[in-house]
């Protein structure tokens, strides 16, 4: 009997070692270890053995069983490896083929830039305010220290609805509207994104364009705060090496007023075609809120100061993306829009 077991052990192990596939191996397993398998058959004959022989043969049988199991496990591992290897070999695909197309959409570059500007100022604690696009002469001009027949009205060629109503020429009326609502509460810190309109249509002017206005009013807002805020903004928007330059200018609703230039984003200030060889690019107008504007909005200009600034989103967008033609922004060619 022992001999029989050893033969089974030897045959089974040999057969298993030479099995070529997991299926074949399984058949071999059934042949020896299955319910009707050879080993099982032999072990059924154990009952006929004497009491002395039974434990010894039992031990041999266990050894044989363990030996076959071991071989089975070893061969299974090898065959699994082989099978996976084979499968991987057969399943290669051309990864350079294009992927499944996704319908491509996106935000308009003007929105992207406007939101980027808003996000920066949200981080500095500004809230976003809004106002009508069809505005009264009062909010668009009068309240901003631009009475009728003021020569500075020529700076903003206006679309009129009637003699008291117009398309707002800037987002600045929202300064007054917001302050009127809030006065005498402090601080006022708002950002006003929006569309504005001027009667101008040529290669560098669109009759409708976008501005972002900013206003900060509090007890101790200074011109130096304006400089610091816009300096930070310029670096955030155009990169950490961006320098700013503040030039005295004139807006009826701010004083002192400043035009703000940044070092040219193309040449870094060395001078190139984009900056007309000056090294500087004008990006926004700003200043300390004119006392008259604070007063008409309900604040005491002796106790409260503020700064305001306004920028054209088109200009900043063009600089950021290297767009050299204003008109493509309003042309809405999908081949353009899909670049953003």
């Amino acid at each position: 009997m022992e001999e029989k077991l050893r033969i089974i052990e030897k045959d089974a192990r040999q057969a298993m070692a030479s099995a070529g596939s997991l299926e074949e191996l399984n058949e071999i397993r059934l042949k020896y270890l299955g319910k009707k398998g050879e080993l099982t058959q032999v072990l059924r004959g154990m009952g006929a053995l004497s009491a002395e022989e039974r434990p010894r043969i039992g031990q041999v049988a266990n050894e044989v069983r363990a030996s076959i199991d071991q071989e089975l496990a070893a061969r299974t591992t090898v065959l699994k490896e082989l099978a996976i290897g084979q499968r991987l070999k057969e399943e290669g695909i051309d990864v350079t083929l294009p992927g499944v197309p996704v319908l491509r959409g996106g935000r308009h570059p003007l929105s992207i830039v406007s939101e980027e500007i808003q996000t920066f100022f949200l981080g500095l604690g500004y809230s976003i305010a809004d106002g009508p696009e069809i505005e009264t002469d009062y909010y668009n001009f009068e309240a901003l220290n631009l009475p009728k027949d003021h020569p500075a009205r020529d700076m903003q060629d206006t679309f009129f609805i009637n003699n008291q109503t117009l398309l707002r020429t800037h987002t600045s009326p929202v300064q007054v509207r917001t302050m009127e609502k809030m006065a005498p509460e402090l601080p006022v810190k708002i950002i006003v994104p929006g569309k504005v309109y001027r009667r101008d249509d040529d290669a560098t002017h669109s009759p409708m364009f976008s501005q972002v206005e900013g206003l900060a009013v509090d007890r101790r807002i200074t011109f130096s705060d304006l400089k610091g805020t816009l300096d930070l903004f310029a670096r955030e928007m155009f990169g950490p090496k961006t320098k700013t330059r503040f030039r005295p200018s004139y807006f009826p609703f701010t004083e002192p007023s400043a035009e703000v230039d940044i070092s040219c984003v193309m040449c870094g200030g060395k001078g190139c075609r984009v900056c007309s060889h000056t090294g500087w690019l004008e990006i926004l107008g700003s200043g300390m809120v004119h006392p008259q504007v604070l007063e008409v909005s309900g604040y005491n200009s002796e106790q409260v100061t503020g700064f305001a600034f306004g920028m054209g989103v088109e200009r900043i967008t063009m600089l950021k993306y290297g767009i050299d033609d204003l008109r493509v922004l309003f042309d809405n060619d999908l081949r353009f829009l899909q670049q953003f």
């Binding site: 808003q118 100022f121 949200l122 981080g123 500095l124 604690g125 500004y126 809230s127 976003i128 601080p187 810190k189 900060a216 509090d218 007890r219 101790r220 807002i221 200074t222 011109f223 130096s224 705060d225 400089k227 610091g228 805020t229 300096d231 930070l232 503040f246």
Partner: peptide
């Protein structure tokens, strides 16, 4: 003119 940031209580900037 130096460059500074406004001094005062922190305000909460949020979108409506």
């Amino acid at each position: 003119v130096p460059a500074t940031l406004p001094y005062g209580p922190t305000t909460h900037g949020v979108k409506t």
